[in-house]
């Protein structure tokens, strides 16, 4: 009787789970550019909605700063800390993909996996 139909939310979650399963990333989220949480796969001690709002603010500020330099568009924001690394990039016009990883994780590999995931998200969101 069950229709084998996944909701958009389930699909977005699956993209994030696959991303986390690559081993380089331990938390990830899809956030609208205006700061709303769309989906996340995060440890429960992280306040995901605050994280979403702040990430969108961070990316917005970075993009504005960058465009003021008239050097084209900002591709991604990378924040490196002693205990974690946060990477945010666009996933279509309306959304951002954000991940958190170990500071020693392989950046190139993460970016590659994130590019793939963000392309999927862009298609799933239909824009």
């Amino acid at each position: 009787m069950m229709e084998g139909k996944l909701t958009l939310r389930d699909m977005l979650k699956k993209v994030l789970m696959d991303l986390n399963a690559t081993g380089e990333v331990y938390a990830s989220a899809i956030v609208s550019r205006n700061g709303l949480l769309m989906a996340c796969e995060m440890p429960s001690d992280i306040d995901s909605r605050t994280f979403a709002a702040m990430t969108a603010t961070m990316v917005g500020a970075a993009e504005t700063a960058f465009s003021e330099l008239k050097k084209g568009v900002a591709e991604r924001v990378i924040v490196e800390g002693r205990e974690a690394k946060i990477i945010a990039m666009g996933a279509g016009k309306k959304a951002l993909l954000v991940t958190m990883s170990d500071p020693r994780a392989n950046l190139g590999l993460i970016l590659l996996e994130m590019e793939k995931a963000s392309e999927k998200i862009r298609k799933l969101l239909g824009r």
Binding site: S32, N34, G35, L36, A56, T57, G60, T64
Partner: peptide, 10 residues
Amino acid sequence: DPILEQLGGE
């Protein structure tokens, strides 16, 4: 204001 414009949506 650019941030206001961005975060105001929705």
